[in-house]
Design a binder for these strands. Structure first.
Lengths: 195, 195
DNA sequence: CATCTCATGTAAACAGTTACATGATTCA
DNA sequence: TGAATCATGTAACTGTTTACATGAGATG
Protein backbone atom coordinates (compact mmCIF):
# COMPACT_ATOMS: atom_id res chain seq x y z
CA UNK A 1 0.00 0.00 0.00
CA UNK A 2 2.79 2.44 -0.87
CA UNK A 3 0.62 4.68 -3.06
CA UNK A 4 -0.56 6.16 0.23
CA UNK A 5 3.03 6.93 1.13
CA UNK A 6 3.90 8.20 -2.34
CA UNK A 7 1.04 10.71 -2.01
CA UNK A 8 2.09 11.67 1.52
CA UNK A 9 5.65 12.09 0.24
CA UNK A 10 4.46 14.42 -2.54
CA UNK A 11 2.24 16.46 -0.20
CA UNK A 12 4.92 16.62 2.52
CA UNK A 13 6.72 19.21 0.38
CA UNK A 14 4.14 21.71 1.66
CA UNK A 15 2.27 22.66 -1.52
CA UNK A 16 -1.44 21.86 -1.87
CA UNK A 17 -2.13 19.60 -4.83
CA UNK A 18 -5.14 18.29 -6.72
CA UNK A 19 -5.56 14.68 -7.78
CA UNK A 20 -4.88 15.77 -11.31
CA UNK A 21 -1.59 17.43 -10.39
CA UNK A 22 -0.50 14.33 -8.48
CA UNK A 23 -1.29 12.25 -11.54
CA UNK A 24 0.87 14.50 -13.71
CA UNK A 25 3.70 14.18 -11.19
CA UNK A 26 3.41 10.37 -11.03
CA UNK A 27 3.36 10.14 -14.80
CA UNK A 28 6.46 12.17 -15.50
CA UNK A 29 10.12 11.74 -14.66
CA UNK A 30 10.10 14.17 -11.75
CA UNK A 31 8.40 11.99 -9.16
CA UNK A 32 8.73 8.73 -10.93
CA UNK A 33 9.49 6.47 -7.97
CA UNK A 34 5.87 5.34 -7.76
CA UNK A 35 3.48 4.85 -10.66
CA UNK A 36 -0.30 4.92 -10.22
CA UNK A 37 -3.27 5.13 -12.58
CA UNK A 38 -5.43 8.28 -12.36
CA UNK A 39 -8.54 6.56 -11.04
CA UNK A 40 -6.53 4.93 -8.26
CA UNK A 41 -5.15 8.30 -7.14
CA UNK A 42 -8.64 9.83 -6.89
CA UNK A 43 -10.03 6.99 -4.82
CA UNK A 44 -6.93 6.83 -2.64
CA UNK A 45 -7.24 10.57 -1.92
CA UNK A 46 -10.84 10.06 -0.77
CA UNK A 47 -9.78 7.25 1.56
CA UNK A 48 -6.87 9.28 2.94
CA UNK A 49 -9.11 12.28 3.51
CA UNK A 50 -11.60 10.08 5.38
CA UNK A 51 -8.85 8.61 7.57
CA UNK A 52 -7.41 12.05 8.38
CA UNK A 53 -3.98 11.71 6.72
CA UNK A 54 -4.74 14.57 4.34
CA UNK A 55 -7.33 17.36 4.33
CA UNK A 56 -9.17 19.31 1.65
CA UNK A 57 -7.38 22.62 1.15
CA UNK A 58 -9.73 24.18 -1.36
CA UNK A 59 -12.70 23.03 -3.43
CA UNK A 60 -14.10 25.29 -6.13
CA UNK A 61 -17.68 25.43 -7.54
CA UNK A 62 -17.15 22.52 -9.85
CA UNK A 63 -15.31 19.67 -8.23
CA UNK A 64 -11.67 20.85 -8.50
CA UNK A 65 -10.20 19.85 -5.14
CA UNK A 66 -6.74 20.38 -3.70
CA UNK A 67 -5.38 18.56 -0.66
CA UNK A 68 -2.75 19.25 2.01
CA UNK A 69 -1.02 16.85 4.38
CA UNK A 70 -2.16 16.86 8.04
CA UNK A 71 0.06 16.45 11.13
CA UNK A 72 -1.30 12.93 11.36
CA UNK A 73 -0.25 12.33 7.73
CA UNK A 74 3.21 13.69 8.43
CA UNK A 75 3.39 11.34 11.45
CA UNK A 76 2.36 8.36 9.32
CA UNK A 77 4.99 9.28 6.70
CA UNK A 78 7.74 9.31 9.36
CA UNK A 79 6.44 6.12 10.97
CA UNK A 80 6.51 4.37 7.59
CA UNK A 81 10.10 5.41 6.90
CA UNK A 82 11.33 4.31 10.32
CA UNK A 83 9.22 1.24 11.24
CA UNK A 84 8.31 -0.50 7.97
CA UNK A 85 10.89 -2.60 6.19
CA UNK A 86 11.73 -1.35 2.69
CA UNK A 87 10.39 -3.60 -0.05
CA UNK A 88 13.26 -4.29 -2.45
CA UNK A 89 11.30 -6.57 -4.73
CA UNK A 90 11.50 -5.64 -8.40
CA UNK A 91 8.95 -5.80 -11.21
CA UNK A 92 10.66 -4.49 -14.29
CA UNK A 93 8.74 -5.41 -17.43
CA UNK A 94 11.20 -3.71 -19.81
CA UNK A 95 14.17 -5.53 -18.25
CA UNK A 96 12.35 -8.88 -18.27
CA UNK A 97 11.88 -8.38 -22.00
CA UNK A 98 15.54 -7.59 -22.59
CA UNK A 99 16.45 -10.81 -20.74
CA UNK A 100 14.18 -12.88 -22.97
CA UNK A 101 15.26 -11.47 -26.35
CA UNK A 102 17.39 -14.53 -27.17
CA UNK A 103 14.22 -16.47 -28.12
CA UNK A 104 13.77 -14.20 -31.17
CA UNK A 105 15.51 -13.90 -34.53
CA UNK A 106 18.24 -11.28 -34.91
CA UNK A 107 16.24 -8.83 -36.96
CA UNK A 108 13.51 -8.66 -34.31
CA UNK A 109 16.05 -8.41 -31.49
CA UNK A 110 17.62 -5.45 -33.24
CA UNK A 111 14.25 -3.76 -33.70
CA UNK A 112 13.25 -4.21 -30.05
CA UNK A 113 16.59 -2.91 -28.75
CA UNK A 114 16.16 0.13 -31.02
CA UNK A 115 12.78 0.83 -29.42
CA UNK A 116 14.20 0.51 -25.91
CA UNK A 117 17.16 2.78 -26.75
CA UNK A 118 14.73 5.37 -28.13
CA UNK A 119 12.71 5.25 -24.94
CA UNK A 120 15.73 5.68 -22.67
CA UNK A 121 17.09 8.52 -24.79
CA UNK A 122 13.76 10.32 -24.59
CA UNK A 123 13.86 9.86 -20.83
CA UNK A 124 17.37 11.28 -20.64
CA UNK A 125 16.28 14.35 -22.63
CA UNK A 126 13.32 14.91 -20.30
CA UNK A 127 15.67 14.76 -17.34
CA UNK A 128 18.11 17.22 -18.89
CA UNK A 129 15.20 19.60 -19.57
CA UNK A 130 14.16 19.31 -15.92
CA UNK A 131 17.65 20.36 -14.83
CA UNK A 132 17.56 23.36 -17.18
CA UNK A 133 14.25 24.43 -15.61
CA UNK A 134 15.82 24.14 -12.16
CA UNK A 135 18.79 26.33 -13.07
CA UNK A 136 16.58 29.43 -12.77
CA UNK A 137 14.79 28.81 -9.49
CA UNK A 138 16.87 26.77 -7.14
CA UNK A 139 16.04 27.37 -3.48
CA UNK A 140 18.64 25.09 -1.77
CA UNK A 141 16.19 23.77 0.80
CA UNK A 142 16.42 20.20 2.20
CA UNK A 143 13.57 19.28 -0.15
CA UNK A 144 15.46 20.55 -3.17
CA UNK A 145 18.71 18.90 -2.08
CA UNK A 146 16.90 15.58 -1.80
CA UNK A 147 15.19 16.00 -5.18
CA UNK A 148 18.37 17.05 -6.91
CA UNK A 149 19.95 13.83 -5.63
CA UNK A 150 17.06 11.88 -7.16
CA UNK A 151 17.71 13.64 -10.43
CA UNK A 152 21.37 12.54 -10.37
CA UNK A 153 20.33 8.94 -9.66
CA UNK A 154 17.86 8.92 -12.57
CA UNK A 155 20.38 10.37 -15.01
CA UNK A 156 23.08 7.93 -13.90
CA UNK A 157 20.93 4.82 -14.19
CA UNK A 158 19.49 5.88 -17.55
CA UNK A 159 22.98 6.52 -18.91
CA UNK A 160 24.19 3.14 -17.66
CA UNK A 161 21.15 1.49 -19.23
CA UNK A 162 21.91 3.10 -22.60
CA UNK A 163 25.52 1.99 -22.51
CA UNK A 164 24.37 -1.49 -21.50
CA UNK A 165 21.87 -1.71 -24.37
CA UNK A 166 24.69 -0.99 -26.81
CA UNK A 167 26.62 -3.94 -25.36
CA UNK A 168 23.52 -6.17 -25.28
CA UNK A 169 22.97 -5.62 -29.00
CA UNK A 170 26.54 -6.69 -29.81
CA UNK A 171 26.38 -9.73 -27.54
CA UNK A 172 23.09 -11.00 -29.00
CA UNK A 173 23.70 -10.19 -32.67
CA UNK A 174 27.33 -11.22 -33.09
CA UNK A 175 28.04 -14.63 -31.59
CA UNK A 176 31.74 -14.32 -32.40
CA UNK A 177 32.33 -11.63 -29.75
CA UNK A 178 33.15 -12.45 -26.13
CA UNK A 179 30.44 -11.01 -23.81
CA UNK A 180 32.98 -10.25 -21.11
CA UNK A 181 35.04 -8.17 -23.54
CA UNK A 182 31.99 -6.31 -24.86
CA UNK A 183 31.12 -5.15 -21.36
CA UNK A 184 34.69 -4.43 -20.21
CA UNK A 185 34.33 -0.70 -20.72
CA UNK A 186 31.06 -0.50 -18.76
CA UNK A 187 32.24 -2.68 -15.87
CA UNK A 188 35.62 -0.93 -15.66
CA UNK A 189 33.95 2.47 -15.62
CA UNK A 190 31.52 1.66 -12.82
CA UNK A 191 34.27 -0.14 -10.90
CA UNK A 192 35.93 3.26 -10.54
CA UNK A 193 32.95 4.35 -8.47
CA UNK A 194 33.26 1.69 -5.82
CA UNK A 195 36.01 1.76 -3.23
CA UNK B 1 -0.26 -10.04 -16.16
CA UNK B 2 3.49 -10.28 -16.63
CA UNK B 3 3.98 -13.07 -14.09
CA UNK B 4 2.73 -15.34 -16.87
CA UNK B 5 5.50 -14.05 -19.11
CA UNK B 6 8.13 -14.19 -16.38
CA UNK B 7 7.30 -17.88 -15.92
CA UNK B 8 7.32 -18.50 -19.68
CA UNK B 9 10.67 -16.70 -19.86
CA UNK B 10 12.12 -18.93 -17.14
CA UNK B 11 10.76 -22.13 -18.72
CA UNK B 12 11.84 -21.09 -22.23
CA UNK B 13 15.40 -21.94 -21.26
CA UNK B 14 14.43 -25.59 -21.77
CA UNK B 15 14.75 -27.04 -18.29
CA UNK B 16 11.67 -28.44 -16.50
CA UNK B 17 10.97 -26.60 -13.24
CA UNK B 18 8.71 -27.00 -10.22
CA UNK B 19 6.78 -24.16 -8.65
CA UNK B 20 9.18 -24.27 -5.77
CA UNK B 21 12.22 -23.87 -8.04
CA UNK B 22 10.59 -20.95 -9.83
CA UNK B 23 9.97 -19.32 -6.47
CA UNK B 24 13.63 -19.71 -5.53
CA UNK B 25 14.61 -18.16 -8.87
CA UNK B 26 12.20 -15.22 -8.46
CA UNK B 27 13.42 -14.61 -4.91
CA UNK B 28 17.13 -14.45 -5.68
CA UNK B 29 19.29 -12.14 -7.73
CA UNK B 30 19.58 -14.50 -10.70
CA UNK B 31 16.14 -14.00 -12.20
CA UNK B 32 15.17 -10.93 -10.28
CA UNK B 33 13.40 -8.98 -13.02
CA UNK B 34 9.99 -10.11 -11.75
CA UNK B 35 8.99 -10.70 -8.16
CA UNK B 36 6.10 -12.94 -7.17
CA UNK B 37 4.87 -14.50 -3.94
CA UNK B 38 4.97 -18.33 -3.72
CA UNK B 39 1.22 -18.80 -3.58
CA UNK B 40 0.77 -16.68 -6.67
CA UNK B 41 3.26 -18.79 -8.62
CA UNK B 42 1.44 -22.03 -7.76
CA UNK B 43 -1.95 -20.73 -8.81
CA UNK B 44 -0.54 -19.11 -11.95
CA UNK B 45 1.06 -22.44 -12.93
CA UNK B 46 -2.32 -24.16 -12.60
CA UNK B 47 -3.99 -21.57 -14.80
CA UNK B 48 -1.19 -21.73 -17.39
CA UNK B 49 -1.37 -25.53 -17.46
CA UNK B 50 -5.15 -25.33 -17.99
CA UNK B 51 -4.73 -22.86 -20.86
CA UNK B 52 -2.03 -24.95 -22.54
CA UNK B 53 0.94 -22.56 -22.24
CA UNK B 54 2.84 -25.06 -20.12
CA UNK B 55 2.50 -28.78 -19.49
CA UNK B 56 3.23 -31.12 -16.58
CA UNK B 57 6.59 -32.76 -17.19
CA UNK B 58 6.65 -35.07 -14.20
CA UNK B 59 4.56 -35.54 -11.06
CA UNK B 60 5.79 -37.88 -8.33
CA UNK B 61 3.71 -39.84 -5.75
CA UNK B 62 3.37 -36.86 -3.48
CA UNK B 63 2.52 -33.70 -5.30
CA UNK B 64 5.98 -32.57 -6.52
CA UNK B 65 5.26 -31.35 -10.03
CA UNK B 66 7.60 -29.99 -12.69
CA UNK B 67 6.46 -28.10 -15.76
CA UNK B 68 7.80 -27.50 -19.26
CA UNK B 69 6.87 -24.84 -21.80
CA UNK B 70 4.68 -25.91 -24.76
CA UNK B 71 4.95 -24.70 -28.37
CA UNK B 72 1.88 -22.62 -27.65
CA UNK B 73 3.65 -21.10 -24.63
CA UNK B 74 6.72 -20.34 -26.71
CA UNK B 75 4.45 -18.68 -29.28
CA UNK B 76 2.78 -16.56 -26.61
CA UNK B 77 6.21 -15.52 -25.25
CA UNK B 78 7.29 -14.33 -28.72
CA UNK B 79 3.95 -12.63 -29.35
CA UNK B 80 4.26 -10.76 -26.04
CA UNK B 81 7.77 -9.51 -26.86
CA UNK B 82 6.79 -8.32 -30.32
CA UNK B 83 3.18 -7.11 -30.03
CA UNK B 84 2.73 -5.82 -26.47
CA UNK B 85 4.12 -2.42 -25.53
CA UNK B 86 6.73 -2.57 -22.76
CA UNK B 87 5.51 -1.16 -19.46
CA UNK B 88 8.12 1.32 -18.23
CA UNK B 89 6.23 2.36 -15.12
CA UNK B 90 8.27 2.14 -11.93
CA UNK B 91 7.30 1.16 -8.40
CA UNK B 92 10.45 1.41 -6.33
CA UNK B 93 9.65 1.46 -2.63
CA UNK B 94 13.29 1.74 -1.53
CA UNK B 95 13.91 4.70 -3.85
CA UNK B 96 10.69 6.44 -2.78
CA UNK B 97 11.98 6.22 0.79
CA UNK B 98 15.36 7.70 -0.12
CA UNK B 99 13.55 10.63 -1.78
CA UNK B 100 11.53 11.32 1.35
CA UNK B 101 14.35 11.18 3.91
CA UNK B 102 14.54 14.98 4.25
CA UNK B 103 11.43 14.89 6.52
CA UNK B 104 13.49 13.13 9.22
CA UNK B 105 16.20 14.27 11.64
CA UNK B 106 19.82 13.71 10.67
CA UNK B 107 20.47 10.82 13.02
CA UNK B 108 17.57 8.84 11.57
CA UNK B 109 18.54 9.73 8.00
CA UNK B 110 22.02 8.39 8.69
CA UNK B 111 20.64 5.17 10.15
CA UNK B 112 18.31 4.54 7.21
CA UNK B 113 21.04 5.20 4.62
CA UNK B 114 23.25 2.73 6.53
CA UNK B 115 20.55 0.09 6.20
CA UNK B 116 20.13 0.71 2.47
CA UNK B 117 23.91 0.62 1.90
CA UNK B 118 24.07 -2.70 3.78
CA UNK B 119 21.32 -4.11 1.56
CA UNK B 120 22.98 -3.05 -1.67
CA UNK B 121 26.36 -4.35 -0.54
CA UNK B 122 24.83 -7.72 0.28
CA UNK B 123 23.25 -7.75 -3.17
CA UNK B 124 26.59 -6.95 -4.82
CA UNK B 125 28.25 -9.84 -2.94
CA UNK B 126 25.50 -12.23 -4.07
CA UNK B 127 26.07 -11.14 -7.64
CA UNK B 128 29.84 -11.60 -7.40
CA UNK B 129 29.27 -15.09 -5.98
CA UNK B 130 27.00 -15.87 -8.92
CA UNK B 131 29.76 -14.91 -11.35
CA UNK B 132 32.24 -17.15 -9.50
CA UNK B 133 29.82 -20.07 -9.86
CA UNK B 134 29.55 -19.36 -13.58
CA UNK B 135 33.34 -19.38 -14.11
CA UNK B 136 33.32 -23.18 -13.93
CA UNK B 137 30.45 -24.09 -16.25
CA UNK B 138 29.94 -21.52 -18.94
CA UNK B 139 28.31 -22.90 -22.06
CA UNK B 140 28.32 -19.80 -24.33
CA UNK B 141 24.83 -20.40 -25.64
CA UNK B 142 22.49 -17.51 -26.59
CA UNK B 143 20.71 -18.07 -23.24
CA UNK B 144 23.93 -17.68 -21.32
CA UNK B 145 25.03 -14.64 -23.32
CA UNK B 146 21.71 -12.96 -22.52
CA UNK B 147 21.92 -13.88 -18.84
CA UNK B 148 25.51 -12.74 -18.54
CA UNK B 149 24.41 -9.37 -19.91
CA UNK B 150 21.72 -9.20 -17.21
CA UNK B 151 24.39 -9.91 -14.64
CA UNK B 152 26.48 -6.97 -15.90
CA UNK B 153 23.43 -4.68 -15.76
CA UNK B 154 22.65 -5.70 -12.18
CA UNK B 155 26.23 -5.20 -11.00
CA UNK B 156 26.46 -1.82 -12.73
CA UNK B 157 23.23 -0.43 -11.32
CA UNK B 158 23.98 -1.71 -7.81
CA UNK B 159 27.43 -0.10 -7.91
CA UNK B 160 25.98 3.20 -9.12
CA UNK B 161 23.37 3.03 -6.35
CA UNK B 162 26.08 2.52 -3.70
CA UNK B 163 28.10 5.45 -4.98
CA UNK B 164 24.94 7.55 -5.07
CA UNK B 165 24.00 6.66 -1.48
CA UNK B 166 27.38 7.94 -0.36
CA UNK B 167 26.64 11.28 -2.04
CA UNK B 168 23.08 11.37 -0.73
CA UNK B 169 24.34 11.03 2.84
CA UNK B 170 26.66 14.00 2.40
CA UNK B 171 24.01 16.15 0.72
CA UNK B 172 21.41 15.50 3.42
CA UNK B 173 23.65 15.61 6.49
CA UNK B 174 25.92 18.54 5.67
CA UNK B 175 23.99 21.57 4.42
CA UNK B 176 27.21 23.48 3.77
CA UNK B 177 28.17 21.29 0.79
CA UNK B 178 26.99 22.00 -2.75
CA UNK B 179 24.94 19.01 -4.06
CA UNK B 180 26.28 19.51 -7.58
CA UNK B 181 29.85 19.26 -6.33
CA UNK B 182 29.11 16.18 -4.21
CA UNK B 183 27.85 14.29 -7.26
CA UNK B 184 30.47 15.59 -9.71
CA UNK B 185 32.48 12.38 -9.54
CA UNK B 186 29.43 10.15 -10.17
CA UNK B 187 28.05 12.26 -13.03
CA UNK B 188 31.45 12.70 -14.68
CA UNK B 189 32.11 8.97 -14.49
CA UNK B 190 28.80 7.93 -16.08
CA UNK B 191 29.15 10.73 -18.65
CA UNK B 192 32.15 8.84 -19.98
CA UNK B 193 29.79 6.02 -20.96
CA UNK B 194 27.58 8.05 -23.21
CA UNK B 195 28.73 9.23 -26.61
C1' DC C 1 -17.29 23.59 -33.91
C1' DA C 2 -14.21 19.96 -33.21
C1' DT C 3 -10.55 18.36 -30.59
C1' DC C 4 -7.35 18.49 -26.84
C1' DT C 5 -6.29 19.08 -22.11
C1' DC C 6 -8.15 19.76 -17.62
C1' DA C 7 -10.58 17.44 -13.94
C1' DT C 8 -13.09 13.92 -11.30
C1' DG C 9 -15.11 9.90 -10.46
C1' DT C 10 -17.64 4.68 -10.43
C1' DA C 11 -17.81 -0.32 -11.20
C1' DA C 12 -16.11 -4.57 -12.69
C1' DA C 13 -12.32 -7.34 -13.41
C1' DC C 14 -7.79 -8.74 -12.52
C1' DA C 15 -3.30 -9.11 -10.00
C1' DG C 16 -0.98 -9.82 -5.84
C1' DT C 17 -0.41 -10.45 -0.62
C1' DT C 18 -1.19 -12.55 3.75
C1' DA C 19 -2.72 -15.85 6.73
C1' DC C 20 -3.45 -20.35 7.12
C1' DA C 21 -3.09 -25.47 6.37
C1' DT C 22 -0.66 -29.67 5.35
C1' DG C 23 2.84 -33.00 5.14
C1' DA C 24 7.54 -34.96 3.58
C1' DT C 25 12.61 -34.77 4.04
C1' DT C 26 16.99 -33.39 5.93
C1' DC C 27 20.20 -32.29 9.39
C1' DA C 28 22.00 -31.38 13.87
C1' DT D 1 13.23 -35.34 18.26
C1' DG D 2 12.97 -30.71 17.08
C1' DA D 3 13.91 -27.27 13.70
C1' DA D 4 14.80 -25.94 9.05
C1' DT D 5 13.88 -26.58 4.42
C1' DC D 6 11.29 -28.66 0.76
C1' DA D 7 6.83 -28.52 -1.46
C1' DT D 8 2.06 -27.34 -2.54
C1' DG D 9 -2.00 -25.30 -2.04
C1' DT D 10 -6.79 -22.46 -0.46
C1' DA D 11 -9.39 -18.39 1.04
C1' DA D 12 -9.92 -13.78 2.25
C1' DC D 13 -8.32 -9.52 1.57
C1' DT D 14 -6.03 -5.59 -0.56
C1' DG D 15 -4.11 -3.15 -4.48
C1' DT D 16 -4.36 -1.94 -9.36
C1' DT D 17 -6.10 -1.61 -14.07
C1' DT D 18 -9.52 -0.91 -17.50
C1' DA D 19 -13.59 0.58 -19.30
C1' DC D 20 -16.82 3.80 -18.85
C1' DA D 21 -19.13 8.32 -17.75
C1' DT D 22 -19.26 13.26 -17.29
C1' DG D 23 -18.46 18.00 -18.16
C1' DA D 24 -15.67 22.59 -18.21
C1' DG D 25 -12.23 25.41 -20.54
C1' DA D 26 -8.75 26.31 -24.05
C1' DT D 27 -6.93 26.12 -28.88
C1' DG D 28 -7.01 25.98 -33.66
Amino acid sequence: MALKHAILSALSRGVARTGYELNVAFRDVTDSAWHASPSQVYSELQKMDASGLIAVHKRDERGKTSYVITDEGMGELRRWLIDDEPDHSVRDDAMLRMLTLWVLDKETINYLIDAEVAFQQRRLLQLKRLLRDWKETRPDTPVWRNRYSAYVMNVSVTTVRLSWLKGLREVLLDESVDPEEVFTYLTDTVDNLHI
